[in-house]
Every structure is written in structure tokens, then in C-alpha cells.
Write a protein that binds this DNA or RNA. Structure first.
Lengths: 198, 198
DNA sequence: CGGCGACGTGAACGGTGGTTAACATCCCGG
DNA sequence: CCGGGATGTTAACCACCGTTCACGTCGCCG
């Protein structure tokens, strides 16, 4: 153990290396069948390599999943921070920014959406704790904005409302194809805005 | 094989038999960790029995999951049929009935909600096909009502809207405790109604 | 009373799959 | 040209887990 030479947390997005191909292919496979039902050989085959070759790039199968989930929660957390800061101080504008951000992410990465809320339980306790911390911070950004829009509501109610909005927007994996991206975007945005402000 | 004496599809709800205890315990465990991460021994231990004892009640672990998912989709499908019929011919009233029905189900059975959309992929092709058929019929009942409320919208858009509403309402597993059942019910109902009629 | 069926148990079997080991290949810097 | 590091491959190892087997117990019915 403790055998990874370079920081596994932040990958160089500059080079589309084999490592990145593996993560992307694994995300697709995990989303389709669940991480526990996907073998290392399957992931390898998806990038034209045999199973054990994976271990030249990742310490273990679990490490792959951990890095995948950590990246997602980081992306969401920092993205939300950025987007809210750019929206000014109007809660309604902040909400619109968060909704637009989440809608874009959900439409662009349905596979990641699926993996994140299905395979969190497959992580080691430490990794799970870290992912949950980031997820929690992301939720709290929504809760803050929702709290400003609903001053009479409790924090717990705002949290429940935030989770309901995530469920709504993150339904993209279940609505495969058939509707254009732009139409899906406006539909989800309208529904989420209505549900958030009621 | 082919060794089950009585129809496995409809269990006598009258007797809280060992068989039912197993299904219930398995649902809770599957929801917490995912069916593939739960061993037969775990399920057995949850009802005070060793692993192999399960095979006195189910042909296989997969058969357990199959029966669980089939029951859920049947319950939803027939429940929706019943509820819509009782709501008269007003689309708004029908929608309200469907929303109330799904909200009740989601609040009463968060574990089943979780298992249904996470472990469908673990079923055999035949079982999966059967579950999907029932799920599809359930969705189409929503689509019909939503189509009446949005005459200008395409069927595909209505289907996407239905999935978004399911995601919203089925967020109950993520909003554990902290808010009373009745408060959750009115919150989800208000949000879903607003999102459905926008 | 005798036995049969329902229900459980502990032990063993077999396949699956993550992981490691030993061995090639290719590319590059000295 | 030589050597080493990055990258792959095949074969083997090993643990886990679903499943089956042989056996025991308890209760009911004839």
C-alpha cells in the first residue's frame, strides 16, 4: 500500500492519456451495469487492453472509483462556488445560476450522475467520507440560496427541497435521447425553477 | 430447477411468514449496500438464520431480487390504475391523484425506491424485460395525464417530464429523517404539482 | 406410534474476479 | 549501441460467495 507515485486526485487534463481513457470508459460501464458487476477485464477491453494492464495506471479497482467520485464532487462544488459568485447578490439570480449549472452538468454527464448516487456505498470508509464532505458542501450552497428565497422555511426543509431538485434535474439518465438537448434544458430549467420557488 | 411449488409472484400478505421477513430484510440491506454487495449470509443473519436456509424459501438470490422488483412495479402499476379511475375525468384531478399516490409510496418505502432504480440491471434478461414492461405502463399512465395538461407538448417531452417528476418525488431516500412525514408530503406534493403544471 | 414434510445447519464444491508475478516490447537519453 | 522506465501480456494465485449436500430436528396427520 501507499504505492502511488503521483497525486491521484488531480489528473492533468492537458494530456488525453490512457489513464483518462480508462476513467471515461469505466464511468460509462459502471453507469450501465454498476461498478460491482463490471470486471477489470471489461474496463480494459473497452480501451483495447487486457485487464491487468489497468494496474499500471491505478492502484486498484476501488481507487479508480474513488478518483472518479472525488472528481465529480469537486467539479460540482467548485463549479457552484464560481457560478454563484458570478450571479451577484440576488437570490433569484443565484438560484437560476445553480439550476443552469446543474442542468448543464446532468445533460453532459448522465453516466457520472448515475455512478455518483449508485456506487457511493462501494467506496472505502475514508474515501466515502471525503466524497460525502464535498457533496454536503455542494448541497449547502443550494440550501443557502433556497433559504434566502424561503425565509419562513426551516433549514431541514430547504435541504429536502434541494434533494428533490437534484432528483428532478438528475433524471437525465432515465430520459435517454428522443428529445433535443436544448429542449431538455429548457424543460428541466422551467420545472426546477417552478418547483424551487413554489 | 423449476422447483418452486407455489406461484412466487403473489405472496399471501395475510401471514407474515419467514419468507416475507426475508424479502423485507433483503430490501433494506439491498438499499443500503446494493444487491451485489450483500451476501446470502447477510440476509440470513438479518432474520436470525444462516445463509443456506434462504434456499428453503427462494430458488436463488436473483429470484429474490426479481420477486422484489416485480412486486414493486406491479404495486405501482395497479395502484395508479385504481387511483386514476377514482379521480374522475379532470386531468388536474388525475394528476393530483397520481402525485399523492407516488408521494405516499416514496415516503413509505424509501428502500424499495432505491433498490428499484439501482438493481434493475442485476436481473436476468427475462425478469428485467418483465419489470420494464410494468414500469413502462406506469410511466405511460403519467404521460397520458401530462399530455392532457400540455396539449402542445410532444409525447417524448411528456415522458421526460414524468421521469423528472419521479426523480423529484423519489428523492425521499436522500432526505432521511429531520422533517416530519406530513411536512415532507406537502412539500413534495407542492413541488411536484408546480413542476408538472408549468 | 411412526413417518413424512417443513425448516435449519455445517461442510464442501466451483466459478468468478481482483490482484500479483514473470516476462516481453518499445522508446528514449547518454 | 546500451540501459532503463513506461506499458502490456499471459499465467497463476487466492479469497469470496452462491449454491448444493448430507444430515438433524420438530410438529403434524393418519
Amino acid at each position: 500500500m501507499t504505492a502511488e507515485p503521483d497525486s491521484a486526485l488531480h489528473a492533468d487534463a492537458a494530456r488525453p492519456s490512457r489513464r483518462e481513457q480508462i476513467l471515461q470508459a469505466a464511468a460509462r460501464l459502471f453507469a450501465e451495469r454498476g461498478s460491482r458487476s463490471v470486471g477489470v477485464d471489461d474496463v480494459g477491453a473497452a480501451v483495447g487492453v487486457t485487464g491487468p494492464a489497468i494496474y499500471r495506471h491505478f492502484a486498484s479497482k476501488d481507487a479508480m472509483l474513488a478518483e472518479m467520485l472525488l472528481r465529480i464532487s469537486e467539479r460540482l462544488h467548485t463549479g457552484a462556488e464560481h457560478v454563484v459568485a458570478d450571479a451577484g447578490s440576488d437570490p433569484a439570480a443565484q438560484l437560476a445560476a445553480l439550476v443552469a449549472f446543474q442542468v448543464d452538468f446532468a445533460l453532459d454527464n448522465p453516466a457520472l450522475i448515475t455512478v455518483q448516487d449508485r456506487d457511493l456505498g462501494a467506496l472505502s470508509d475514508d474515501d466515502a467520507r471525503q466524497v460525502r464532505r464535498l457533496q454536503r458542501r455542494y448541497v449547502e450552497q443550494w440550501v443557502a440560496v433556497l433559504g434566502a428565497l424561503h425565509p419562513e422555511a426551516s433549514t431541514a426543509a430547504c435541504r429536502a427541497r434541494a434533494h428533490a431538485l437534484f432528483g428532478l434535474i438528475n433524471s437525465t439518465p432515465h430520459s435517454a435521447g428522443r428529445v433535443s438537448r436544448s429542449a431538455m434544458a429548457s424543460l428541466l430549467t422551467a420545472m426546477a425553477t417552478a418547483a424551487a420557488t413554489t
